[in-house]
Amino acid sequence: MELLSHLFWGSGSLLIVGLLWRMGRLTLVSRYPYFSAYIWGVICSGIVRFWLQPSTSRAYALGYWISEFGCALLAYGVTWEIYRHTLAPYQGLRRVARAVVGLLFALIAAKAAAELWTNPMGLRSTTVELERNVRVVQALLLVAIVGMVVHYSVPMGRNVCSMLVGYGLYVAVRAVLLALLSWQGVVFQPWVSMLLQSAWVLALVIWCVGMWSASPNPVAHPQVECAYESVSGYTVRAMGQLREHLTHSWRA
C-alpha cells in the first residue's frame, strides 16, 4: 500500500511539473490564470505538508486541513475559468447560466438556513464535513455549467474540455469519498486516501493530454444572431402541433 502511495506521489509530482512546463511553453499560464493559480496552490500545499512532516504530528494535521481548504477555495477559480472561457462568446447563455447559478445559491442558502433553524448546533461541523460541503457546491456549479454546455451543444476547445473533464472527475470522486468518510464518522481511511491519489493522478493525466497543445475555444457565429422571440415562439407552436398530430391522428 505504501509503495503504491509513493508511486502515485512520484507520478503526480512528475505530471504536475510536466503540465506547468508545457503550459509555460505554450503561454497557457496567462490564458488560464485561475487554473494556473490552482496548480501552484497545490504545489505550495505539497511543500508545506512536506515541511510539516511527520504526518502524525499535530502541526501536520493543522497544516493539512488549512492547505486543503486553501486548495478547495482556489479550485473555485477553475470553475470560474471553465465558465469564463466556455460561455464567453454567448451573451444570452451567460445570462441564463448566471440565473441558474443564482438559483442554486439561493437553494443552498435556504437549505442551510432551514437546517440551522431546526438544529442550531449544526454550525459545529467537522473539517471533513466542511470540505465535503465545499466540494459538493463545486460539483453543483459544474453540473449547472456542464448541463448548459451539453444542452446547447456549446463547442469547446481541447484545453478547456480537458480542464472540465479532469477537474469534474476529481471533484466528483473527492465529494463522494468525503461524504463516505463523514458518514462513517472517521477522518482517514488508507483505501480512501489511495483512491483520492489515483483520481488526482488521473486528472493530471487528462490535463497533460489536453494542455499538450494550445487549442482555444471555437469562435461563435455572431453573424447569425437570430430573432430569439420569434424562434422561441415558433418552436413552442411547432411542438404543440406535433403533440396534436400525435394524439389526434388516431381518430377515425
Binding site: Q91, G92, L93, R95, C226, Y228, T235
Partner: peptide, 26 residues
C-alpha cells in the same frame, strides 16, 4: 426541431430563462 432550436438560439443575446423553461415544458 428541438436540437435545431437549441443550436439557433445559443448565439442569441436576448435568450431568456423563462422562455426556455416554457419550451422545455412543451
Amino acid at each position: 426541431l428541438y436540437r435545431q432550436h437549441l443550436r439557433s438560439v445559443r448565439d442569441a443575446a436576448d435568450l431568456r430563462l423563462s422562455a426556455e423553461a416554457k419550451l422545455l415544458l412543451a
